[in-house]
């Protein structure tokens, strides 16, 4: 029997520096058959491991429509992520997954989608945005509100430029007050405040948000104030995980396990647990 806790080796094909402490790994399974059959949906995550350092949870940053590889963006914050940052192209990591639920992209079709991200929280949204853009005509208006501490902390800078200039989506970039240089042309302010100043048509609009817990909490409040129904609002949550399959017992919020019942939740589903999460 295949052990759910045993990973498959994957080779690092490419490493891109996103920010001073975030890299994006492009990964290809050593087993070609595994690569071909590995199927996931935007919003799902993997357990990525480095021998002698351990295993951690990362959402998949690439889109299901990106065939032949997967990407994970890794911020250097602890033991495993420091080990990831030491790796070079050609290095081997272990991958288990995909795990968790996903964004209900089918249900978003035919309407507007508003993406609200903060810092490294753009990663799961990027997977969804790329997937949405691969079928652009299925959606109406697309808007991205994304903020980071400073310009150098914005991830996927080239892609943000591409989204901004393609002409069929709105991209609002914001930097935390004090994080901007003189030549900054975007917004200055925290993401929830920047969002609050905008006029957004809530009808037929799905809002999707991910970022630091304090940002998510405030964004959910702002969306509420704008008139979004809590079932139209999705967020993807982060909790410490070990197994990724609902057994190790630590990623629960009330009876919900982020690894199995999440990581994607409607605001409606987690509303009663907000004090516990944030």
């Amino acid at each position: 029997m295949k052990d759910s806790l045993v990973p498959d080796p994957a080779r690092i094909e490419d490493i891109r520096n996103e920010t001073p402490d975030v890299v994006t790994l492009r990964l290809v399974f050593e087993d070609r058959g595994k690569m071909e059959t590995f199927s996931f949906r935007a919003g799902q995550f993997v357990e990525l491991s480095v021998p002698k350092a351990g295993e951690s949870t990362f959402c998949i940053a690439s889109a299901p429509s990106d065939r032949g590889y997967i990407e994970c963006s890794v911020k250097k914050v602890g033991r495993v992520t420091e080990a990831v940052h030491m790796l070079e192209p050609g290095g081997i990591v272990g991958i288990r997954g995909p795990y968790g639920n996903f964004f209900p992209i089918e249900a978003m079709k035919g309407g507007n989608v508003l993406f609200i991200g903060g810092g490294i929280g753009l990663v799961p949204l990027r997977s969804l945005i790329r997937e949405v853009l691969s079928a652009r005509s299925d959606f109406k208006r697309l808007s991205v509100v994304y903020g980071a501490r400073s310009e150098r902390d914005l991830v996927y800078k080239d892609e943000l430029d591409e989204w901004r200039t393609r002409g069929d989506m709105e991209v609002v970039l914001a930097l935390d007050p004090g994080g901007e240089m003189e030549d900054w042309k975007g917004e200055v302010g925290y993401v929830p405040s920047v969002l609050e100043k905008r006029t957004i048509e809530t009808k037929d609009c799905t809002a999707v948000t991910c970022g630091p817990p304090v940002m998510i909490k405030r964004v959910l409040g702002v969306l509420d104030g704008m008139g979004f129904c809590s079932s139209q609002v999705y967020t993807t949550l982060e909790m410490k995980m070990k197994c990724g399959i609902g057994k190790c017992g630590r990623c629960n919020i009330g009876p919900l396990y982020v690894c199995k019942d999440g990581p994607v939740f409607t605001y409606e589903r987690i509303k009663e647990f907000t004090e516990e999460i944030f």
């Binding site: 806790l5 491991s49 021998p51 002698k52 350092a53 351990g54 295993e55 909790m239 410490k240 070990k242 197994c243 057994k247 190790c248 017992g249 630590r250 990623c251």
Partner: peptide
């Protein structure tokens, strides 16, 4: 509840507890 850790090149699953402040 359990933890998964690396002991050198061995990946080990061991008991853990929600009592500890590192648990979550």
């Amino acid at each position: 509840c359990f933890d998964i850790v690396d002991e050198g090149f061995y990946r080990v699953r061991c008991w853990d507890t929600c009592s500890f402040d590192t648990f979550s």
